[in-house]
Design a binder for these strands. Sequence first.
DNA 1: AATGGCCCCAACCGCCGTTTC
DNA 2: AGAAACGGCGGTTGGGGCCAT
Length: 238
Amino acid sequence: MDFKKEETLRRGPWLEEEDERLVKVISLLGERRWDSLAIVSGLKRSGKSCRLRWMNYLNPTLKRGPMSQEEERIIFQLHALWGNKWSKIARRLPGRTDNEIKNYWRTHYRKKQEAQNYGKLFEWRGNTGEELLHKYKETEITRTKTTSQEHGFVEVVSMESGKEANGGVGGRESFGVMKSPYENRISDWISEISTDQSEANLSEDHSSNSCSENNINIGTWWFQETRDFEEFSCSLWS
DNA sequence: AATGGCCCCAACCGCCGTTTC
DNA sequence: AGAAACGGCGGTTGGGGCCAT
């Protein structure tokens, strides 16, 4: 336990002055050796803290503002594909950080996902509670096997409400209609890559719980166009 | 106006893999 | 080869802001 270090390091929210200093030092020395950089800068912050601040907030390549519909779709689909691999997902979304995506998922998609899971279960009319559960589990096992074999990961999504589930279904925000402090900073490029066709597909995705054969369906966890989608998301970088 | 509950997000924590010496 | 330092990642927390009562 290094008490000396503990008491000299600053923690908590960054001040504007600290941000400025960090940006200056990074512009001189580059994005590396964060511990040394933290010392050189004179900031009483850990290297880790400096790195995080830069990566998640100060980096000029970051794109702030609400997620576009295309980004929402990518997050939704890649999470279904890879699970909580936030950094991996972030690499497919230029200008977005893993932290941002992680937070976004937690506050938006998880609720939507739960709602859709329940919605899907209710489609099995005429079944007892046990039968419904059994069918859900069957679906889950099939999906897990399929995705594991094809993509090398296993993801389990619980039907049970987490601690934030109260008010989750039908909570304050409806999915896709969000207010954000960064609302006015939407980048132009993302709209350029959003084609009319993808918009059309998206409206199908989000307007109902239906099971379109061409689109990812969260209720049954089937992916018809996984590989095509991976290629598509890669193209965002080019 | 006060208050309590909820949401959102920046920041931290702990672990683990990689790099450096 | 191995220990230490560094960097990356996913999970968690805390506080500010908003909203309903």
